[in-house]
Design a binder for these strands. Structure first.
Length: 117
DNA sequence: CGTGTGACGCGAG
DNA sequence: CCTCGCGCCACAC
């Protein structure tokens, strides 16, 4: 099975995105859009998910969630459960597949669309 | 080159 | 709380 050869540009973008994800501290979370913006790609949150899917390394992918605080996976999927356990083991409370952004969002000053509660 | 798809985001009902 | 629609962009076909 040959790995899909990414274009040089895409590979570079993925590297930048992974570099940002790697900076998310333990016990904090960031949204896809926030990671994209920090990596230099505003309005391209989907690129972040792509970068994580094609990633093999030990990246804290579980600290990346949607802008509304919800875990991106279907709440019944095994991936969502794995992400929940990883977050909870870091002290991040997950209620009904959602993280309280007001408590656990990384760099809330940069981007906080849903700061309720 | 048009179309569909998705670990997204956001506003309207 | 929910669903829909549209914008967004890379990629598979």
């Amino acid at each position: 099975m040959a790995v899909k050869p990414l274009t040089e540009r895409t590979e570079y973008r993925y590297l930048r995105i992974r570099a940002v994800v790697a900076q998310i501290p333990v016990g904090k979370v960031a949204s896809y859009g926030q990671v994209a913006a920090l990596a230099g790609f505003p309005n391209n949150a989907r690129l972040v998910s792509k970068a994580l899917v094609s990633d093999n390394s030990t990246l804290p992918w579980h600290r990346v969630i949607r802008s509304d605080g919800k875990i991106a996976f279907s709440d019944t999927s095994s991936m969502a459960q794995r992400q929940r356990s990883r977050l909870e083991s870091e002290g991040v409370a997950v209620t009904r597949n959602r993280v309280c952004l007001s408590r656990f969002l990384w760099q809330p000053n940069l981007y906080h669309p849903c700061d309720t509660d």
